[in-house]
Design a protein around this nucleic acid. Structure first.
Length: 879
DNA sequence: CGATCCCGCCACATT
DNA sequence: AATGTGGCGGGATCG
């Protein structure tokens, strides 16, 4: 048969005129000497020939049929084929000639011919990789489906993945707009950033382990999960939040999975991701029961996605040999560094932009949803509701594109990740040998603190935020704990997790990030100036829009993630660069989420409030489960963001406290400080600050080593439960602020006492600090943010600072701040504040929850109300 | 026999 | 209610 064809073909005219870029397609044709014989017109195609006929033909050529033929050919392969044979895989279709064969060919199209990968190639062949900006190519699903000869369902599979990378966007029903790869790098960059936040640690983790993931996800319960998520991922979701409702399940898997999957590659050092790991990570639910079936389904979907990505030339299939044996995996072969990326102006994610139609609303919020489980419920409400501004949405206005992303999912996924990480960690703990570079510390309730090591290890910071689940304080902790309470000690000497500790310490990383729940938005924005920007922050948000916008409609919504992504990554990167190490972030992802819900209270976040809130949180650890969780999470993320922000500006970050104080001035304060390690400094350094280190470390007290962190960390609400110790006294050169402000330089010491509640956080101004930090070249010390965190006076007051000498703190006088206990706290922001915030942002549970308020903090930024709030607060606090 | 993953049912969303 | 979307998983193929 083939022969016939061939014979015919040869003569045939080469039809392909189309410029479609076949370039990608491989080699097919070239090999053939003769020009590609294209299929001829005469092909039997049924289609009525329309103007587009050419296209169709081409397509058809490419189509499966062709493939079939080819296969056949392979089999028999007459002459010409022989040549081609070389490039079997590639898409040969071009060359195809085939029309002739059609008849026969079909006979038995092998499965391969029908593969999604091929289909995708054909699909891609129809559109230029880099279309002229001027023209817009619209894609009609029906048309394409018919042209390619497949059911529409299959087209959806392709388009959904392409959409996740912003190569196309949905314009209307049945209509997609082709964007090409112009924004691909941006999208990837965004994903990378988001991925680092979300998965960085995990991946690192896994990889370290060699990817052996033994853990079984199955067991983990949701509870464990709670925290990790954050919204970070989101990526760009285009969706506008607004339509929140829209979110529906759609956003569900494919699109999101695809993005996440890509993120895993981008975050992975090896650029190789095994299917099973990816599946585990992507399984959203808490999956306590990780049913096997679920896993299988996930894997199936990943294959679908992988096929499309493979067609795009972004990944290729490989196998990794692990302990267990060989496992299927994929290797990223796409761009790793994104040129433009480097810095996008902070803020917004590029991704959003690309999408024309999409609304990119940012829906950031989603993740935050914190509760993992529920997230599915449409957050839309929240998202859309407040956060999303109409404005944005409208802008985006699209046809109707409903798709918004449902970030919820993300949340859930995040959770899963967290769970996974957790497991790993646990495992590690058990097997010290393995130890991953990072250690986690579960943070008790507050996720606020997280220390992240940027560089290498990552682990999720999980904060236990609220473990509504079981652990009041830190969920994660429990997981960890089990293995070793002692863990704190770190098996390898690495930092470890302290069981109850609020933060995580990462050893290697050059940086630690402390995450407090803050709003990210604010953070980011504030970053720049840190200090003063009260207004700016507001502005920032406004300005930021891109970022914020993207995801969430408004700041509040703005899920931290988005911003975070952008910025943090940057920060991290910076650090990384220095270290070289990939950063791992701890991700607090949650913050964002919360905003919406709890934002109200949180919004207040002003320092004082925050603090209080924290306290509250602590006190009521679990309280509202979801709420707490969310809140906590949000905090983390916020912190991160902040941190990142801070860092950007300069190191000095603001402590929460500091913030609080400031917040009067500024709406948002960065909650945490993060310090970049200087070259000289090792991460450890951070941990163990020179000054205190000795003592701290030794700390026998609880056996917990205390850490000195160069950075100041502000406790988030969660912390509240823990006493904070601040030792301003220590050398803080700056020490300007009497109240409790700490110089930026101040290092924090965390003592990890076993008890979460008890664990005090020390903040020392100690000189130890990393060099960089204190001086911060970039920033003037003076600057607002300037160095230290200041505890807001208010807080201080309210909290009552106590000086402690904790054993831990060794010689330094430490000021311990106690957080007011919730109950005690007379003023909680929320109480003080007008309800309205609450109304908006808060969720039901939020009020009570400290956590919630944290979230809110971030949110508040945007509104004047926040300001008011502050004022009020301030006034009150004074009392 | 495990890895792939096509196929298309059917639920949910949008019109 | 009709139609668009797309989750999902049975079970066929591939290797």
């Amino acid at each position: 048969e083939n022969i016939f064809d061939r014979s015919r073909m040869a003569p045939k005219t080469p039809i392909k005129n189309e410029p479609v870029d076949l370039s990608k397609q491989k080699g097919c044709t070239p090999e053939r000497n003769p020009i590609t014989p294209v299929k001829l017109v005469d092909r039997p195609q049924p289609d009525p020939w329309t103007p587009t006929a050419n296209l169709k033909m081409l397509v058809s050529a490419a189509s499966p049929d062709m493939r079939d033929r080819e296969k056949k050919k392979e089999l028999f392969r007459p002459i010409e084929n022989s040549e081609q044979s070389d490039t079997p895989d590639s898409l040969q279709y071009d060359m195809v000639d085939d029309s002739t064969v059609d008849e026969f060919e079909k006979q038995r199209p092998s499965r391969k011919q029908k593969s999604l990968g091929l289909l995708c190639q054909k699909f891609l062949a129809r559109y230029p990789s880099y279309p002229l900006s001027t023209e817009k190519t619209t894609i009609s699903l029906d048309e394409v489906a018919s042209i390619l000869g497949v059911e529409r369902r299959r087209i959806y599979d392709i388009v959904n993945v392409l959409e996740s990378l912003h190569l196309v966007s949905r314009v209307a029903k049945n209509q997609y707009c082709w964007h090409g790869r112009h924004n691909l790098s941006q999208t990837l960059k965004t994903l990378q950033e988001a991925g680092e936040l979300q998965y960085g640690e995990l991946m690192t983790f896994f990889q370290h382990k060699e990817q052996d993931l033994e853990y079984k996800l199955g067991e983990r319960k949701k509870e464990t999960i709670p925290d990790s998520q954050d919204r970070p991922l989101l990526d760009f979701s285009e969706p506008d939040c607004t339509s929140a409702s829209a979110n529906s399940r759609k956003d569900k898997s494919l699109r999101i999975m695809s993005q996440k999957f890509v993120m895993l590659f981008l975050v992975s050092k090896t650029k190789i991701v095994t299917l099973d790991i990816a599946a585990k990570i992507l399984i959203e639910e808490t999956q306590d029961t990780v049913d096997h079936s679920k896993f299988k389904t996930k894997v199936r979907r990943l294959y679908d996605i992988a096929n499309v990505l493979t067609s795009l030339g972004l990944i290729k299939k490989v196998h990794v040999t692990e302990e267990r044996g060989r496992k299927p995996a994929f290797k990223w072969i796409g761009p790793v560094e994104f040129p433009g990326k480097t810095d996008k102006p902070r803020g917004h994610s590029p991704m959003s932009d690309p999408l024309p139609g999409m609304q990119r609303g940012v829906c950031a919020p989603y993740q935050i949803c914190a509760t993992g489980k529920q997230r599915f419920t449409r957050h839309a409400s929240f998202n859309g509701a407040q956060p999303c501004e109409g404005t944005r949405r409208k802008v985006s206005s699209e046809p109707n594109s409903p798709r918004q992303e449902r970030q919820d999912e993300y949340c859930s996924k995040m959770i899963n990740l967290a769970a996974v990480c957790r497991q790993k960690i646990e495992e590690d703990a058990r097997n010290p040998s393995i130890t991953s570079p990072l250690s986690l510390l579960p943070v008790p309730g507050d996720s606020d603190f997280c220390v992240n090591p940027l560089p290498q290890a990552v682990f999720p910071v999980v904060q236990a935020d609220v473990p509504s689940l079981s652990l009041p304080n830190g969920i994660s902790s429990q997981a960890l704990h089990p293995s070793t309470p002692a863990a704190s000690k770190t098996e390898n000497g690495k930092p470890t997790l302290l069981p109850n500790q609020p933060f995580l310490c990462f050893p290697s990383s050059s940086l630690f990030m402390l995450c407090g729940g803050l709003q990210e938005n604010n953070l980011r924005e504030t970053l720049p100036a840190t200090g003063d920007m009260g207004n700016s922050r507001a502005e920032a948000q406004a300005t930021v829009p891109p970022a914020a916008c993207q995801k969430r409609s408004s700041h509040k919504c703005a899920s931290p993630s988005a911003p975070v992504d952008d910025e943090e990554p940057a920060a991290k990167k910076q650090t990384m660069e220095q270290s070289d190490v990939p950063l791992s972030l701890v991700v607090p992802k949650k913050l964002f989420e919360s905003p919406k819900a709890e934002s109200a209270p949180a919004s207040g976040c002003t320092s004082a409030e925050h603090l209080e809130a924290c306290h509250l949180d602590l006190e009521s650890p679990a309280a509202p489960e979801a709420a707490d969780k969310e809140s906590t999470k949000p905090l983390d993320s916020q912190e991160q963001e902040r941190r990142s922000q801070n860092k950007d500006p300069d190191e000095p970050s603001l402590g929460r406290e500091h913030i609080s104080k400031e917040n009067v001035n500024q709406p948002f304060l960065p909650q945490y400080l993060y310090v970049q390690p200087t070259a000289g400094l090792s991460s450890f350094n951070f941990l163990f600050s020179a000054n205190q280190a000795p003592g701290a470390i030794s700390l026998a007290a609880s056996q917990l080593p205390s850490l000195s962190v160069p950075c100041v960390v502000v406790p988030s609400a969660a912390l509240a439960s823990f006493p904070l110790v601040c030792s301003p006294t220590i050398t803080s050169p700056l020490s300007p602020v009497p109240d409790g402000s700490f110089s930026a330089a101040a290092s924090m010491n965390f003592s990890m006492s076993g008890l979460a509640s008890t664990t005090p956080v020390f903040i020392g101004t100690t000189a130890v600090v990393t060099p960089k930090v204190s001086p911060t070249p970039s920033v003037d010390p003076q600057q607002p943010a300037h160095p230290a965190l200041h505890l807001s006076p208010v807080l201080a007051r309210s909290c009552g600072a106590v000086k402690l000498d904790s054993p831990v703190c060794m010689g330094h006088p430490v000021t311990l701040l106690k957080l007011q206990q919730p109950s005690s706290t007379p003023l909680t922001p929320k109480s003080i504040h007008p309800a309205r915030h609450e109304a908006f942002f808060k969720t039901p549970g939020s009020l009570g929850d400290p956590v919630a308020w944290k979230k809110n903090e971030g949110n508040q930024t945007r509104n004047a109300s926040s300001v008011q709030r502050r004022l009020e607060i301030s006034s009150t606090s004074p009392d």
